[in-house]
Write a protein that binds this DNA or RNA. Sequence first.
DNA 1: AAAATATGAGACATATTTGTATTATATGTC
DNA 2: GACATATAATACAAATATGTCTCATATTTT
Lengths: 192, 192
Amino acid sequence: MPTDLRIKKSTRALLDASFAVLLNNPHASISEIANQAGVGRATLYRHYPTRESLIQALAVESLSIIGDALLPIRERGDSGMKAMQGMLQALLPLAQRYHFLQMIWTVAELDRDVWQHYETQVAWVTEWVSQGQIAGEINPALDVSWVVSVVDSMLYSASWLIAQEGMSQQKMLQQMQLTLATGIAAQAVTAD
Amino acid sequence: MPTDLRIKKSTRALLDASFAVLLNNPHASISEIANQAGVGRATLYRHYPTRESLIQALAVESLSIIGDALLPIRERGDSGMKAMQGMLQALLPLAQRYHFLQMIWTVAELDRDVWQHYETQVAWVTEWVSQGQIAGEINPALDVSWVVSVVDSMLYSASWLIAQEGMSQQKMLQQMQLTLATGIAAQAVTAD
DNA sequence: AAAATATGAGACATATTTGTATTATATGTC
DNA sequence: GACATATAATACAAATATGTCTCATATTTT
């Protein structure tokens, strides 16, 4: 954790630029990232000696941001549908960051720090779903990993529609929560 | 439409390799694609003078494949939930190709051929959803574009779980269809 | 204010890629 | 079988990127 203001400024700029550039092209060049950050390339290498270390630092930060967003759910002791709906709300503003993690995961996962954050979060979410199934709120016929994946995919859809079609966050949140609860059918289909 | 066997062989190899390589890295080099195809780089340029033309040819092919998969639904005159479930079934084996289109869309959409195919398919799917809403099968509180997007992103999630977690296609199809019909809740939530 | 140090710019050698062209050869067409 | 042509391999000039290093300067720390 640097205290020197110059270092904090440079690394902040690098992490922000990395996210923006790599979100659009995970294979973007180091030169491009440095340019976008308004930081010298040599400086970039001083802080992050390899491309991988930069990506991993960004992954740790992203996971940390996401973890912070999920913390209120955990602290409230929510689980089941309430937790799922809470996730949609908490993560919608972070959907791009969530998607970004998926894109760079093969590089990020090699870092131990990344794994620790990830495993913690997976454990939380998995537990919320499992408890929801035990409590009879979430359909036990659905795999836990599938439920988690559905939430992820809805967030992705919503963020995409917001970005590409100019939908409002509020509208998308409502559509997600409705769909998560009842699917797309107009009449509730009897759960068999 | 070439008749010379050599041309057919080369272009087939190039389209296949392009799909495989660009699916993993939409910015992969032309050299890498040519290598993967086992085709000379000069040959690649002879058939596809620019990167964009290669990507656009691949997009047209991908849309054509997807369109073929959706045709039975159209020919049966399905709409509403039946069409949605049919889409899940038809497109699950093609989920990667669908996702690929999204990744290269900014390049692909510049081609008129691509747009024609795309608009046709969007029109079909949009109509199936709209008719479903009018017929009272699909929740009219949900935006058409949202419904389409949910189907798309679920397919992607399912294909990812198949690839990364070794889930079976049959299992994923079942999970998708159940989720689409009733959401993730165990008890059908009253549609208000 | 002095000392420490982070930084940008530039340089260097190397690697990779691009777009284009040529030529000998293999292969398809007629 | 004769002819046409598609092709791979190679070469070229140019562009881009990488990883590393040096140095003058700006900025922060002490």
